[in-house]
């Protein structure tokens, strides 16, 4: 519990970080009769003594974090449900809400550590035709850029968004960012860098477009702040620490009982 709380506090400024919550459960109970300890009578409840506690779950809270303006063009926040899908170095998919993207040397949209956003988008393909310094990303996840004035040939693949033709210089759509969601996102496990991977208990991912079917909207120039609430973490820290102290106190006392027993024979 203290470890988890410490980790939460450490990530209080990590974009897209989701707070972890711990829960505990008691261990099995053992009848005193099995151990031939002194008992009296035949009571309704045969006396049993407990064996302690174990961690039952560490669950991320998937609550929305607040959106913080960064004014950086590749900072994307999801307002609502959903995850960005990224391609991990081992080829598997990971899911994240940390929208702190940037361009790598080749012009791919990547998150920290060079992890590619899926679907991959190589912006340098378009550098002769559009102004890459003026990219806008709509809440629906569409990536737009104005056509360069001196670009005379427009790639066939570049689509003109409906209704935007009047914009000076013309605006073209370079690609689209999709979102993914799960029925039970709390079962995702974390692998660092704020990337989640599906665990055994996670439902299959559902793909969708931002802003549709209950998927969240994408906000360009914002980052989702960590949803860790410092005051809750501080109380958790106190609760955890007191429980730790109490348990270590009971260990000391149990030790003293043994010492007293050993002192029977002077």
């Amino acid at each position: 519990m203290l470890d988890v709380t410490a980790n939460n506090i450490a990530n209080i400024n990590a974009a897209g970080y989701k707070e972890n919550q711990t829960s505990f459960q008691d261990l099995t109970y053992r009848a005193l009769a099995e151990r031939r300890l002194p008992r009296a009578g035949e009571p309704l409840y045969p006396p049993r003594s407990g064996r302690g506690v174990e961690l039952s779950s560490v669950t991320p809270s998937m609550e929305q974090g607040s959106l913080e303006s960064t004014e950086h063009r590749f900072d994307l926040a999801i307002e609502g449900e959903g995850f960005f899908r990224v391609i991990l170095p081992d080829g598997n998919f990971g899911y994240t809400r940390n929208g702190n993207f940037s361009l790598d040397e080749e012009g791919n949209l990547v998150m920290a550590g060079g992890i590619l956003l899926d679907p991959t988008l190589n912006l340098s393909d378009y550098e002769d035709e559009v102004d890459l310094n003026d990219i806008t990303i709509s809440p629906e996840g569409r990536i737009f850029a104005p056509r360069l004035a001196d670009a005379d040939v427009l790639d066939e693949e570049l689509l003109l968004p409906e209704g935007d033709e009047e914009l000076p210089g013309g605006v073209v759509q370079l690609g689209e960012i999709g979102l993914h969601r799960f029925v039970n996102p709390q079962s995702l496990s974390r692998i660092g860098e704020n990337i989640h991977v599906p665990s055994e208990a996670t439902s299959p991912a559902e793909e969708g477009l931002p802003g549709e079917d209950g998927f969240g909207a994408i906000r360009q120039g914002y980052l989702e702040a960590s949803n860790v609430d410092l005051s809750t973490q501080m109380t958790d820290l106190i609760r955890g620490q007191r429980a730790l102290q109490a348990s270590s106190r009971s260990m000391v006392t149990a030790d003293e009982l043994w010492a007293i027993t050993l002192n029977l024979q002077r």
Binding site: F24, Q25, D26, P38, P47, R242, S247, S250
Partner: peptide, 23 residues
């Protein structure tokens, strides 16, 4: 006998204390 009973009590208290944060 008293020592044994108190050992059981101690075990029980340890168990209660270790479950201080068990919902």
């Amino acid at each position: 006998g008293s020592m044994l009973v108190n050992q059981v009590k101690m075990e029980n208290i340890s168990n209660n204390l270790s479950n201080l944060n068990t919902p």
